[in-house]
Design a protein around this nucleic acid. Structure first.
Lengths: 177, 177
DNA sequence: GAATTATGTCAGTACTATTGACGTAATTTC
DNA sequence: GAAATTACGTCAATAGTACTGACATAATTC
């Protein structure tokens, strides 16, 4: 290790900076921010024997009650097989219920139960607290600035997924169309 | 599924909104933004048979050449055993070299090779492009606003990790102390 | 010399994800 | 009405990333 194998390259001792105009500062901040953002709910989930995947399913079923399995797969960008176990556990533990689709009886509409809604709220609470604190601490007067930036980080063709949600939350009106 | 088990809760048909003042909008945007932010390098990594863990190691070794294994574990917040395989692969493929610590010969200082630096840059390039586009598209005039917000999202006790990096990248001077 | 530290490694396990294949029921198409 | 397609569920096998616990080695510190 002091003397690496002959073919090995020589160690580069200078820190990578903004070579080629790469924005390492924000890249790294994004990593740290997301790492800690997910750490809060992770602790709660562990008590239930759940993981991050359960959180995501629970979140979207609460945000869009009645969405079908296919729609959920599309939002999460995972495969049916990956969802199966997680969804089954959430149904078995009475956090989510399936209802046969009214128009198309092959479809399964997913709804949260009171228990599922309570857990979704409990998971979101520390995340929301962190966001509020971050907005205050960073002196961000325009909360919409952050919203617009994050939305612009999403692949354009996937931004439609965001707009599905009723925009009761924010002052923005991107919900009613 | 139409008729759930007797003990099961009833489906809640209203979307979760800002009940209890929870900021679901930004929570969800953060999820989408990070999902797509990581998707760019993931594609490149797949060509090498690497995963996201390799990217993180490569990134920090390039950002802080000469950091020790212990320091890397602290930044990544994973265990020695989790790092082992990933680091070994990066060393075997000549992306990273280990150098015996000059003061303490037990330590292994980690440095990128030219190959490792090139890969780190290739991985960061699409991410940086996405960030630049997002700043422009969202009309964020003050780039520092985003930086401050993301930094404020990080656990206070862990913000020291950010400041280690020489601040050549941004106009901010939080590097020299 | 003994204790501690930094690192490496082995064994076993868990969670999340993948691909491929197959089955069933419902809907659509011809 | 038969055939094709669609929505969903499930089985099997595999991969990547993480975990805990245990143990070994070399170097440093006490």
């Amino acid at each position: 290790m002091t003397d690496p194998s002959p073919a090995a390259g020589k160690p580069i001792r200078t820190a990578i900076a903004d070579e080629d105009g790469i924005d390492f500062a924000i890249i790294e901040l994004f990593f740290f921010a997301y790492r800690d953002f997910t750490s809060d709910p992770d602790q709660i989930l562990a008590e239930y024997g759940f993981g991050r995947a359960h959180h995501r399913v629970l979140h979207f079923v609460n945000r869009r009650p009645g969405l079908t399995v296919a729609e959920l797969l599309d939002v999460l960008k995972i495969t049916k097989q990956s969802l199966a176990r997680v969804l089954k556990q959430l149904i078995d533990t009475d956090h989510i219920v399936q209802v046969q689709g009214p128009r198309d009886r092959r479809q399964r509409e997913l709804y949260p139960t009171a228990k599922g809604r309570a857990l979704a709220l409990a998971l979101a609470r520390p995340q929301s607290r962190r966001i509020r604190a971050a907005l205050e601490d960073s002196g961000t007067t325009e909360r919409a600035t952050i919203e617009r930036f994050l939305e612009a980080m999403v692949n354009p063709e996937l931004r439609a997924q965001i707009d599905i949600v009723p925009a009761q939350t924010s002052g923005k009106n991107h919900g009613d169309h």
